[in-house]
Design a protein around this nucleic acid. Sequence first.
DNA 1: CGGCCAAATATGTATATACATAATGAGCGA
DNA 2: TCGCTCATTATGTATATACATATTTGGCCG
Lengths: 248, 248
Amino acid sequence: MTDLDVMEKPGGEEAPSLHQRILSDISERIVSGEWAPGHRIPFEYELSAAYSCSRMTVNKALSQLAKAGMIERRRRSGSFVRRPKSQAAVLEIHDIKTEVLALGLPYHYRLESRRVRRGTAEDRERLGLAGPSAVIELISVHFAGPRPFCHENRVISLKTVPEAEHEPFAEMAPGPWLVARIPWSVAEHRIRATGVEAGIAAILDIDAGTPSLVVERQTWSADQPVTHVRFTYAGDSHSLVARFTPSH
Amino acid sequence: MTDLDVMEKPGGEEAPSLHQRILSDISERIVSGEWAPGHRIPFEYELSAAYSCSRMTVNKALSQLAKAGMIERRRRSGSFVRRPKSQAAVLEIHDIKTEVLALGLPYHYRLESRRVRRGTAEDRERLGLAGPSAVIELISVHFAGPRPFCHENRVISLKTVPEAEHEPFAEMAPGPWLVARIPWSVAEHRIRATGVEAGIAAILDIDAGTPSLVVERQTWSADQPVTHVRFTYAGDSHSLVARFTPSH
DNA sequence: CGGCCAAATATGTATATACATAATGAGCGA
DNA sequence: TCGCTCATTATGTATATACATATTTGGCCG
């Protein structure tokens, strides 16, 4: 967003603040192409004269534009329109229950298996764990109505989240449970397509090899590995949507 | 970033500005959990006393935290730690040439077909076009070394981008060509897995039905539809990576 | 001609101040 | 008790000012 949402215009009819108006005026000229990449936008003192306001007010607008990546500011030289960066999309990943309910289908969750063990080499790889340390592995299925919607395979580091060892996860899915417990984590996602393997295919009630969308998410909090989860969505049943707006 | 990048700490060893230090001090306490969601953080005047600085400096830090979504500010009541929102991942989608070169493989591009036509119903659907209007359809392949890496099927609205009609696209891929011409666009992405259809399979030199990752991108500039493109990546040859950091 | 230093300039940060605005809560009257 | 008014309070916005800092320009001198 990222820095991306810096630029939203206030939605309703309320009078926007002056620095907001300056910001959106400039951003409009950039988006429309009137001020192309490389163009030098007016100096702070020129804008403050144009809007009859103080330099601080203009500075606030321009600083935000710079933070959002639309302009680059150089001392002594002025402020310049930047060329659009490699596209960055803001991808919302809500929890699966919300996804299913948004489809208008009833949601339920079932735990397939739950195992506590000393971390194997694969677990350490998945979690980005250094030393050997205990983990809990959970396999579960999310249903949309009567049909399996998504398969979840998760390991949680018991070093970072010891309470997980005594949590049954029979009623509550581990995702929401973790979110409630470990706020403000850092996550990395990996999205790919693959033919679904036999074990998962059986649980999802589809043929082995059916194309499926696999979303892997690795999560840390305060530099400690928390969890690694692999979601498998059958076939075209699901697509991720991401909207990217540099400006608006 | 979206509002996400507001929070980065300055990288090197340079002394950060005071409002930056205040911002990162507070953000650390929130990320570590010391100040849980709902917690009321000190009032501006308390912080300004604690840091022996003016209220404006504190205000700058808190306003940025609010914009980044970490805190919520309420007049008369104070500022409160927000609960983490539904996860939003920043997904970088560089152009394909960059992707291929990053794999250490030589890149080349080949145009398969190029057709100008009045927009069909499907074209209007893909572009989000209202009335009938001419389009150009381009089918091309991107190679990583000797092997086809990605199939591209694109339509461009000639109403929005009339120059495209006389562009051969023999040497330059339409993606970079458009980016150079239409900066600062808005885009929506859709990512899904599917079995590849026969026509595309032949071009990618794989079997029909092989699982593939399909990325569709629809683009507007100044509310005008620009282009719709569908990239098909064969099998596990490719995965999208997205890193999400609310804090840091 | 080349290299170095100093002046000019635009942005970066911070301050003290002022008034506007929204929300809370206390007090008062029916 | 309910509902109203009004003072209080924290944030929101804007100003004028000051000095710091990076960078360019131009001129001076060898």
